[in-house]
């Protein structure tokens, strides 16, 4: 029973795990770089959720093949993949902006530890 449950749902369990790891990294870690890594893991878990929900056993890429016929059972729904592709682009842009902010902070204060950073900020003010 439990084994069946795990076997049939294991991708979702792993996705939930990634989701939790990402949120943990963003909230608990003190190093800003690790926070951004956590953010990336968090976003990836959502992409995987979309992809996992759209998988279809025995289906192929959504390009109509006259020999296979036009039954929707034979083709994967392309919309979730397209959505994820767009979301990945958005995610890359967010990561890029985050990294450039981190670069500015490291140049200015020489540390990425959040507590230490705030202390140095107060001292220089």
């Amino acid at each position: 029973m439990t084994a069946d449950f795990l076997l049939s749902r294991y991708p979702y369990i792993l996705i939930a795990l990634l989701f939790g790891i990402g949120l943990y990294g963003m909230t608990v870690k003190r190093n800003l770089m690790k926070k951004v890594i956590g953010m990336t893991i968090f976003q990836t878990s959502i992409y995987l959720f979309f992809i996992q929900g759209a998988t279809k056993q025995g289906a192929t890429i959504p390009v109509l093949d006259p020999e296979m016929g036009s039954s929707p059972e034979l083709y994967i729904n392309p919309l979730p993949q397209v959505i994820v592709l767009t979301a990945i682009v958005v995610g890359v842009a967010i990561t890029g902006v985050a990294l450039s902010l981190i670069l500015v902070l490291h140049r200015r204060y020489g540390t990425l530890d959040e507590v230490e950073l705030l202390r140095r900020m107060r001292e220089s003010a």
Partner: peptide, 17 residues
């Protein structure tokens, strides 16, 4: 500003997610 914005970005990424 950069620290505040980075914090906003992290919050925003969670919200968007």
């Amino acid at each position: 500003a950069p620290v505040a914005t980075l914090r906003y970005l992290l919050f925003g990424a969670v919200g968007g997610g």
